[in-house]
């Protein structure tokens, strides 16, 4: 069975839905409609379901929960991230947020220590640092709210 969103076979008739989402072929006329804005996921809502619903055989824990599963599909990267740049950005945001939280843990020890020594002004500076760090993490979290 052929998927309705796949490009047509070389000898077959052109598929009406492929002209909008696929890159223009060499013989595409110049007045072809512009490519639509990128939207993560598929135009078919059925395919945007969580991966565990689309592929229940693979299981939600593929790669670590089931020792029999090492890859999520027959090809490299199948069934997982299709855009490595976006994945790298997400990983970078997570790493930055974790670094900030580690700094917050250090600042909290300083704040407690200074307050117990009676230096309340330094303790308030520490509290301010903790709040600014939280705002930084919040910014990292909200940096790309459209990301799925």
């Amino acid at each position: 069975m052929t998927h309705p969103h796949l490009p047509p076979s070389p000898g077959g008739p052109p598929h009406p839905e492929t002209s909008a989402g696929a890159p223009p072929l060499p013989n595409t006329p110049a007045d072809a409609p512009a490519r639509p804005d990128y939207r993560p996921g598929s135009a078919d809502p059925r395919l945007n379901r969580p991966m565990r619903e689309r592929y229940p055989q693979i299981r939600a824990t593929s790669g670590y929960g089931d020792p029999r599963v090492r890859h999520t599909g027959p090809g490299p990267g199948a069934g997982s991230e299709q855009e490595p740049e976006r994945s790298a950005k997400l990983t970078a945001r997570l790493v930055l947020a974790l670094s900030v939280v580690i700094g917050q843990l250090w600042a909290l020890t300083i704040t407690v220590n200074e307050w117990m020594k009676g230096d309340t002004s330094t303790a308030w500076w520490g509290a301010g640092f903790l709040c600014l760090s939280f705002l930084a993490v919040l910014l990292l979290w909200l940096l790309d709210p459209k990301d799925r």
Partner: peptide
């Protein structure tokens, strides 16, 4: 990873509230 990012943001907020409480004299 998005879940982790949300968890990290929650922990960060908790630490900020804890710092304010310490400076305010809860200990």
């Amino acid at each position: 990873r998005r879940d982790y990012l949300r968890i990290v943001a929650t922990v960060s907020g908790g630490l900020a509230v804890g710092g304010l409480a310490v400076a305010g004299g809860v200990l």
